[in-house]
Amino acid sequence: MPSDEGVLDRLVDWVHTTDVFKCVASWTLVPYWARRTPVKPLPGGPHPSFQHGDNVQCMMNLIMPLKVKSPIGRAEAALAIAKNKDAIYAGLNNVGTVHFARFVIVGDNICMFSVYDGDFTNYIRDFIATIGEVFNEVVKLVEGGKKVIPCEKNVEAFIQWVHEHDLYQVPDTATDFLRDQEDLKGDRAVSPVDDDLTLLPRKLVLQLRANANISLGSGYRAYPGFSVAQVRKHLKLGW
């Protein structure tokens, strides 16, 4: 690197890579800028689209914080899933549009990650129509879950509840994340604009303050563009 750098140059280049700086900045600069330039949480789930490819293999990343934040609470959640395994699998078969689904416990959250075809609302509607009773067993263990139980009788409220717990899916390209923020603010400006791309790191930090958990990009797909029905048909797996 250039040899004309002084001690302060080297110090500043080094200091922002340290954990101490990151910790101090998280407690001071981040709250300061969050107050100066407030950022709203971005909504969860896939981006709306009419295009075929965007409506197959959609991701749901449902993060549901447990009421009892202890090993006992986590064990209760694990048991609720375990004892209903047959019902869950049978229900998912009946939904018919789910590629993959799994439950995961991370920290004090019970999470459901799934890849499905078609509209999110229809997916959830089908889901609770087939395994609503099982889902009640899980939802009753989750913060705020009481208000949507029984979910098969509170369909719209349950769909909204799931949507609120579904992770914001960051677009595949960094600058599309800015477009999401602009959309949320109603900013539809076209060229010429007066942006400052150097603010991208701050915007990302503040967004991650508002949406602490996110899904990074649309994810890898080995066979993008194909639905469950197409895959099963081509592989002659029956229906």
């Binding site: 690197m1 750098e5 900045a25």
Partner: peptide, 20 residues
């Protein structure tokens, strides 16, 4: 090279200073 004090100002604004 961006002067060190401008880099500090960048960091205070939660910006990443440009590379040397």
């Amino acid at each position: 090279r961006r002067p060190w004090w401008r880099k500090v100002w960048d960091l205070l604004q939660l910006k990443i200073p440009p590379r040397n």
